[in-house]
Design a binder for these strands. Structure first.
Lengths: 211, 211
DNA sequence: TTGACAAATTAACGATCGTTCACTAAACTG
DNA sequence: CAGTTTAGTGAACGATCGTTAATTTGTCAA
């Protein structure tokens, strides 16, 4: 994710180091409680040097948002156009269990987890964070799943229930687990029970929709 | 909630007004981004007068936490001791639909909603907020429901499934809906679909566990 | 080798931060 | 009514905030 935004050719990679430090600090204390001096200290430069790379402190946050947005559009969900061929190619069990893999992949990526934390902290103060959570995460995921379930129903591979309700029943527990997972992980606490719950939820869901 | 913490006999009620202003401001911008001068301006006093009521800015936040904790222990869930008589007295349908009522009651209380927002903002920076969310909210709710489901199973009023799994399947979607609800509400956006989802989820759950 | 440009430093700016101080006015207590 | 407590003001404290300006250092192309 960082590699794409900050190509290695850039000499010292200070611009990238600033983002890395900012993500770590913002995710722990929030944007407002982190000073530019804290960021630049972690990078190893003076505070004034930061302004050679970013116009303002807010532009750093904006860059982090943009990275997350782009990463989600690229990697989080397959494009709607490819949905039909996916649903035709893989059985519902495999499709749904992919949600488990994608969960483990997300919580295993410290960068993604930290940006998710930042979004949670800033969601009320900053309408950009709110927009990412509501549109990209919630609406995007549910819309994708609804379309997928509708296709499965059309192909007769799952029971003919309301696809939007199915999307909700499948995904919303995962949202809540993600929230709790990220919080437990913050103190290095045990998260195995949550992982197990996710898997059991998905398997129970598969049983509910099997035709 | 405020009435109990700040009895009317206190002359001007400045201490209460400070908390009210702080809750509103903290819930919008976060503790760190709100100055004591902003709070006291909203109350109508000078910043120095605040220190007649609270030793530090943090003590205001601490008071808010304590209020939320106590309110939850008093009103959120019936005491475990009374659980047996409740499960004996009301059918599972009524018990579970009570979760819908309690959801509507929570999101309809601006004070509770704002404190919930504060907890979300501060959850990483402040271990006290983290503790409230993980222990009082998550663990407390799931523990209560697990005990309730276990009793229902013992009385044969629901199917004999794993009570902890049932608690998870019932409650976690509600956690996520609450999060999204509070966020949508922040911009005054339409939340009717979410309310409907909650009710449909609970009714679907009732169907799943009916013996 | 020189000139250009990027990236760093030192120093400082005005503003704002949480908190404290000395003091005053009002309200309760004996 | 005198005396003490409570709640308020006005001013200031040292620290820190985001940001800018002037200047130096390092790097690569011409």
């Amino acid at each position: 994710m960082l590699d794409r935004w900050f190509p290695a050719k850039e000499s010292a990679g200070t611009k990238r180091k600033i983002i890395e430090a900012a993500i770590e600090l913002f995710s722990r204390n929030g944007f407002s409680a982190v000073s530019v001096r804290e960021i630049t200290k972690q990078v190893g430069i003076k505070e004034s040097a930061l302004y050679n790379h970013y116009k303002t402190k807010d532009e750093i946050l904006e860059t982090i948002y943009a990275m997350f947005r782009e990463d989600r559009r690229q990697h989080a969900l397959p494009p709607i156009g490819k949905l039909d061929e996916i649903v035709k190619a893989v059985p519902p069990e495999t499709f749904l269990l992919q949600g488990f893999e994608s969960f483990k992949q997300t919580v295993g990526d410290p960068l993604l987890v930290n940006i998710w934390r930042i979004l949670n902290i800033e969601q009320y103060r900053d309408s950009r964070a709110r927009d990412i959570i509501l549109e990209d995460v919630y609406k995007g995921t549910i819309g994708f799943l609804e379309a997928a379930f509708a296709k499965m129903i059309a192909y007769g591979t799952i029971k003919p229930l309301d696809p939007r309700m199915l999307a909700f029943e499948y995904q919303y527990p995962l949202f809540a687990v993600m929230t709790e997972y990220v919080l437990l992980q913050f103190d290095g606490r045990d998260t195995r029970e949550l992982e197990e719950r996710v898997e059991r939820h998905i398997r129970a869901f598969i049983d509910r929709v099997k035709p």
